[in-house]
Computed example of a mutant assay.
Amino acid sequence: MLSEVLLVSAPGKVILHGEHAVVHGKVALAVALNLRTFLRLQPHSSGKVDLSLPNIGIKRSWDVARLQLLDTSFLAPEALSPTCVCLFACETEQGDVTAPTPEQVEKLKEVAGLPDDCAVTKRLAVLTFLYLYLSIFRKQRWTKEDLELINKWAFQGERVIHGNPSGVDNAVSTWGGALRYQQGKIASLKRPPALQILLTNTRVPRSTKALVAGVRNRLLKFPEIVAPLLTSIDAISLECERVLGEMGEAPALEQYHVLEELIDMNQHHLNALGVGHASLDQLCQVTRAHGLHSKLTGAGGGGCGITLLKPGLEQPEVEATKQALTSCGFDCWETSVGAPGVSVHSATSLESRVRQALDGL
């Protein structure tokens, strides 16, 4: 059982190339962002499990005794301690990592106690928390095997939310850095440059599950058209991997130009797959007016896009671009890629930083 306040964090991620194609066995390149999500764990003796997700307005509490009445197939009773559970460093008694059954999901919906008009994003977040909480318990140290287990459990959380995810998101947030992902096999990119980017949230909600299904349906309907698109996206990923491997610590401007060309081509391919959106087109147009190149990242259909910042770009021009994007109603952050993966922090050193971040929401 947790004996003191603990802070853990994991980085955000973006996919440079390979969206949707990765679901069909192609290569994806994913990088961890220097933008992190923090989880604060605090023990208490109230007999309740509390969950607070301030970014999406969730604050819930459950009696441990009530949770113990659920089907024991979730896990042994020692998983149920009156505290917020660490969702990362964990293992089942048998070390098994399994997806929730439809029956378990229905039971989770009952115990969640959410109103019928609760937003889908909030509902899925709560169901994912409850499933992971009932399936895992905390360990004290993280070995390589622990990280592999963290990655597997995070993937099951992704399945609750997205249905049939590729596994890229959980992998890069667990391991950090820059990864090459294909058919479940993960390899770190060798000495990738610390690229500076803009991450822009169009604030247009979308369903990853629906978008993935849409691409699959388009592939079935037009195999001779869509299959070559997926192969071409794969080639873009491989070419980007090659260029990143050659850039080193002193990349040439010409290499950035190649990365920009790849960004443009991939964005057109993703539009052809049917996962573009008017908001993403607007994002690309705004940044193009400032001489920058952008593409969607992730599922598309809204969501987020990334913009590559070339070296030597003056800060006033970066700020002007950010302001133009903000004027469109988007949220925009300037950040870099290649952050470390899931980490444990000292509660005393980071408590004030987390509070400041939460106060600014």
Rank of each mutant, 00 (worst) to 15 (best):
I197F: 04
Q156S: 01
K221F: 14
I236Y: 11
M247V: 01
E319H: 10
P192A: 00
L238R: 15
G245Y: 02
Q255C: 05
L114A: 11
L114F: 10
G298T: 01
T335F: 04
S166C: 01
E145C: 02
E241Q: 14
T128C: 02
I136P: 03
L273N: 01
T92M: 08
S73Y: 04
S45K: 11
L270P: 09
L87S: 09
H17F: 13
W62T: 03
H24G: 00
S343E: 07
G291P: 02
D264V: 15
L7F: 09
I306V: 14
K190C: 08
A125I: 00
Q282E: 14
P100L: 01
G291C: 00
S237K: 05
N55Q: 13
L132Q: 04
L147P: 02
K107M: 13
P340D: 03
L262A: 06
L361C: 09
I15C: 11
L189F: 07
R203H: 15
S9R: 10
P192D: 00
L75E: 14
L358Y: 04
L283P: 03
D146K: 10
R40C: 12
G95A: 04
Q182Y: 05
D234Q: 09
R180A: 12
L230I: 12
K190G: 00
A210Q: 15
D71K: 09
Y133F: 10
S352G: 06
T202A: 05
V27Q: 13
L219T: 05
Q267F: 09
R288V: 04
L35D: 11
E158K: 08
D71Y: 05
V215C: 05
G300F: 04
L127P: 07
L253N: 11
L325Y: 06
P43T: 09
L262Y: 07
V258K: 14
R141T: 13
W333S: 08
T83C: 11
L124W: 07
R206W: 02
V226M: 09
D146N: 12
E319F: 07
L7N: 08
